[in-house]
């Protein structure tokens, strides 16, 4: 009996085909996404139809949250602040990034050092950045005095003046991301085949003509990428507004993420908060689609 068992081929208890293993390998990630991505996403829409303070059970109120948002002056202000912040940051980044990328493309000396220098701001934590810049903007002892006083401006209160606070945050945003985006542009420039320029040169094109008729049109995908990513990122910028100005003065820097955080997490209006989040999601989608339509059309891709 024992001998028989030993000589028989080992019984295979679980014989799984590779396809089964493929599913097994995918499973942990898939389960994670169901719990921490898809479920919250559906829940976001679902909860936005409820009123809920975490203490009492949620009550269904239909579209009330959206109706209230529609009439909420603080929400209008936040949406406007966020749009202004995101669009002006993006405008600066797409234009300055393009110029800087162009110069990077022409640079011959010390590129590695330069690249590192421009890149450093984008790897730093937003909290650290907010702390540094709050001091930089200090009216009398901050680094900003170094630039404003020679121009005849003294004691500029960047962060406590309602007209300067948002521009101050835009400066921080542009400073932080400019290096990153200019390197994206640089990669875009380098992807343009050299023959295009040579052909143009043979045909007698001047440098600015090459720039205008070859570089810029071929750079459209890069431009679009920078614009979309920058809008999406700057729309979600939270730490500088919270730590440098705390949304002030007079709500002039109360960006949507900060409004969302205050409403939901600090004041425990979960339903109202998710309604804000849903609107934010829709606004970002809309901006992305508009950009795709504006810049994507006619490129044939």
């Amino acid at each position: 009996m024992a001998k028989q068992l030993a000589s028989a081929p080992k019984p295979k208890r679980f014989h799984l085909k590779p396809a089964h293993w493929g599913i097994i390998f995918l499973l942990p990630a898939l389960v994670h996404m169901l719990i921490f991505k898809f479920h919250p996403l559906f829940n976001a829409f679902y909860m936005s139809f409820h009123e809920w303070d975490l203490l009492n059970p949620p009550t269904w109120i239909g579209l009330d949250n959206y109706v209230r948002l529609f009439n909420d002056a603080r929400f209008h202000n936040s949406l406007s602040v966020s749009l202004r912040y995101a669009l002006s940051t993006t405008a600066c980044l797409t234009v300055l990034g393009l110029g800087l990328g162009l110069m990077f493309n022409k640079a011959t000396r010390g590129i590695a050092v330069l690249r590192a220098a421009y890149f450093v701001p984008s790897i730093m934590s937003t909290v650290v950045i907010a702390i540094i810049w709050r001091f930089i903007f200090h009216p009398s002892f901050g680094l900003q005095t170094f630039f404003t006083e020679p121009l005849g401006y003294f004691n500029v209160r960047w962060l406590t003046n309602s007209r300067l606070a948002l521009p101050a945050l835009v400066i921080v945003g542009v400073w932080r991301h400019l290096g990153y985006y200019s390197l994206i542009y640089l990669a875009g420039f380098q992807a343009i085949p050299e023959e295009q320029y040579e052909a143009a040169k043979i045909d007698g094109a001047r440098p600015y003509q090459s720039l205008l008729y070859i570089t810029l049109p071929l750079l459209r995908p890069t431009f679009l990428f920078v614009a979309i990513v920058s809008v999406i990122n700057s729309f979600q910028s939270f730490a500088p507004a919270q730590l440098m100005t705390d949304g002030g003065p007079a709500g002039s820097t109360l960006v949507l993420p900060l409004f969302l955080y205050r409403t939901a997490i600090q004041n425990l209006h979960m339903g109202y908060g998710t309604a804000i989040a849903v609107i934010m999601f829709l606004v970002l989608m809309t901006i992305t689609l508009i950009q795709l339509k504006l810049f994507g059309m006619g490129s044939g891709q």
């Binding site: 995918l26 719990i35 479920h39 979960m270």
Partner: peptide, 24 residues
């Protein structure tokens, strides 16, 4: 189909699902 779904989640801004995630 699953791969497309996974790719799709890249477009969800974190802040849009932050509160439900907090509740989870």
């Amino acid at each position: 189909i699953v791969f497309v779904l996974v790719l799709g989640t890249m477009m969800i801004p974190f802040q849009a699902i932050m509160i439900p995630l907090f509740l989870t």
